[in-house]
Design a protein around this nucleic acid. Structure first.
Lengths: 250, 250
DNA sequence: GCATAAAGTTAGGCCGCACTAACTTATTTC
DNA sequence: GAAATAAGTTAGTGCGGCCTAACTTTATGC
């Protein structure tokens, strides 16, 4: 007669995980990835298109259609056929939880384990689905509750709020103005290594010296060196302009 | 015409992971769990029975039959119908890799993040499938290349060797003899908490004072206290007897 | 040595999550 | 506003991994 089991549907992954005040089932890794992608696309407001989601996750649109339907059934997103999707409140919370995990892990790997900043992303991409909230909280505490990850992305708080400030990209900065790098895109290790070489990292102050027309290269002064980068790269670097109204002397 | 993708079978999880000298595909989490279980059952030599595997993994024997067939096809284990299974050399290596991950992670959680020893197991159980070898090696390095995990289990080396010494359980120790706790079973948090209370932890020296017949309780002296525990619990505590040939005076 | 119990297997399902191919709905363009 | 194109959907498949139910093989008891 064999031991009675969970009964029903057979899947074992979907057991209820760590509960922190909120009662919830553990989401599968693919589901968490979808939610993150949809969140990233729709940021504060907008709806996410099937194709965009597919592209971000390197899946076919057909696969996305299917999954989106299931996620809508679970109440994680609002979906109207042929109209794109939006996260529901519950979906948004789930996305932010995953995002918090991801970024805390990135920060921890860099800070506590000496991971190079171009490799934290991939590692975090896998760990974020396996780490418990407790682990993530311990990591955060150990490295002093960081507010941003190694690429400058803000870390959502435990209770699900994030700084959603939209910064200007370096490509959009006017010639002559100065800004501080707040954040760079984190997915391409190659690019990160190159940026590190140029010392274009969060916190760095730089000034746009010239911007060639027709999508030409942008010339910057960073520290005491002058260099120029292509517009595609510049678009991946987010900056906060500094209102230095003729302060004369740096 | 949509971007050409990986082609073929559709699964994306099974991409080749981190290679460390050895060319290999990433195994799925369930597969790693099977291999670990089979390794644990067959330890140095013996074959593992379908039922035992099923029990350890909390699955039905039918499921195990199916999976075992697939693993045999992949060359991870040798299988003869109705005869049980054994790991092949490649299966053994995979099992030890996972075991190393598991135990290094446990040690790291306890050492670097202050995890209580009764909770490291569950966390490691999930992380072991997501952590790269690089991460695990960094963890190990950071805490000084430990040789055992918090429960005293030996950590396999990078190149796949482990100490397979079989110790005697506390239940088998003769009355009057003294031993050092080398290892306790790690899966039951409740039990671990209780053992910790009794200060029965790896490294602790203890002496068997009495052993009641008919599977009765075992009386020990641990440090300066005397206590008794049931035989089932004692069986989970492995000890190395100390040959104190009448040293008189402790 | 034969019946019964225990262990193990096959058959048939189901769910999650991917894919291709073919079709439908929106959007653009002239 | 009809045709072309882009975006999105359904239908049908496959694989991994689990389940139950029914059957077969092996071990055991008398």
């Amino acid at each position: 007669m064999s031991v009675p089991r969970e009964a029903g549907s057979g899947k074992r992954e979907a057991l209820s995980r760590e509960v922190g005040g909120e009662r919830r089932e553990a989401l599968t890794a693919p589901v968490e990835d979808y939610l993150k992608a949809i969140y990233a696309i729709g940021k504060g407001s907008g709806a996410a298109a099937t194709n965009e989601i597919a592209q971000r996750l390197a899946l076919t649109p057909a696969s996305v259609s299917g999954m989106v339907r299931r996620l809508a059934d679970q109440g994680l997103l609002a979906y109207e056929r042929y109209r794109g999707v939006k996260l529901t409140e519950s979906g948004r919370r789930a996305a932010l939880r995953t995002l918090r995990r991801h970024r805390v892990i990135e920060a921890y790997l860099a800070e506590a384990l000496g991971y190079p900043w171009d490799r934290v992303h991939d590692e975090a991409e896998r760990l974020e689905h396996a780490a418990s909230d407790e682990l993530v909280d311990r990591m955060a505490a150990t490295i002093g509750e960081p507010e941003v990850d190694p690429h400058g992305a803000p870390i959502p708080t435990r209770d699900g709020s994030v700084d959603e400030t939209v910064y200007r990209s370096l490509a959009d900065l006017e010639v002559g103005s100065t800004g501080v790098v707040v954040r760079v895109s984190d997915e391409d290790p190659e690019m990160l290594r190159y940026l590190a070489e140029l010392t274009i990292v969060p916190g760095k102050r730089l000034t746009v010296k010239a911007h060639a027309p027709f999508d030409g290269p942008i010339t910057l002064s960073v520290g005491r060196q002058e260099l120029s980068i292509g517009p595609a790269l510049a678009a991946q670097v987010m900056v906060a302009p500094i209102a230095d109204r003729g302060v004369k002397r740096g």
